[in-house]
Amino acid sequence: MQRKLIVASSPHLRNEGVSTRRLMLDVVLAMLPTAVASVWFFGGSALMLLVVAILSAVAGEFFYQKHTHQKVTVSDGSAIVTGMLLAFNLPASAPWWIAMIGSLIAIILVKQMFGGLGNNFMNPALAARTIMMLSWTSLMAANVLPHAGQWLAPQTVDAVASATPLGESPASYTLWQLFSGDIPGMLGETCKLTLLAGGLYLIIRRVIDWRIPVSFLVTAFVLFWIKTGTIYSAESGSENVLYQLLSGGLILGAFFMATDYVTSPVSPLGRIIMGVGCAGMLFVIRAFNPSYPEGCSFAILFMNVLTPLIDKLTVPKPFGYVKPAGSAKEA
């Protein structure tokens, strides 16, 4: 196989050397800058949460599979991704046991009990985050002001009352603060710079399909534009498009959560429906539900559950397909 150009008939699958392990390593690599940023902004407690979450996810998967006499698949790296995503969804003030219980819920309850990798019907990290959010609302919503650079001072974190900058009005953060991550929030959702870089890397490496994040962001952009009428103005507080797009878990969700292979549709059209649906649900929750200023996780979980239906509705038509003669009458 020395030739670089291979002439073959469609479909053109490019899966030489693609394995779950390589994909997961790419995802970890894409999330690393964000992890570093979270430690930079939130200090040692962020590092501790990341380590605890990843270790418990891996250990949980290992011991569950050992105990149930299954093939141990820890080395595929998917547990590392789940643990990391879970830590990204925690505030820096969360105690270590929340990271541990969350990872165990994600791996054992949401993933392994439904049959392991490829069979879970919801994104494990998101489902676990939602379970913890509803269980320990005060611990999970207490957001921590960033302390850029002072990363050995985890004990002096100040908790602020609102869940995300979305809950505050008028907005007290500049666009640059929102973009660079110098705002209170969950560990992995604040720094948009590293999130976008990681997302772009995954799209270029073809690890994720561009359709979900792009349709997600575009739909959100349009919906918030219709609602607020301004793309950006400093006076309008959180009531403008850019503020909405850059705050909360939207970017993290669009690139790293909604694109989960197992819980997103397979067909290209289905993926666009997924992105549009996520943005639609997110918009509905943010705009019309005063008790939840942030709804990204609920929106994605909702679309996770719809994924099998979307897949069923968007089966691509085979080339040259002709409708059976009888079907016109039935329809």
């Binding site: 309850l109 509803l134 269980s135 611990l139």
Partner: peptide, 15 residues
């Protein structure tokens, strides 16, 4: 001990 509130809510009941 921080009570795990979801357990006494409907989804927790199913689980």
């Amino acid at each position: 001990y921080h009570p795990m509130a979801i357990v006494i809510r409907p989804p927790g009941g199913f689980v």
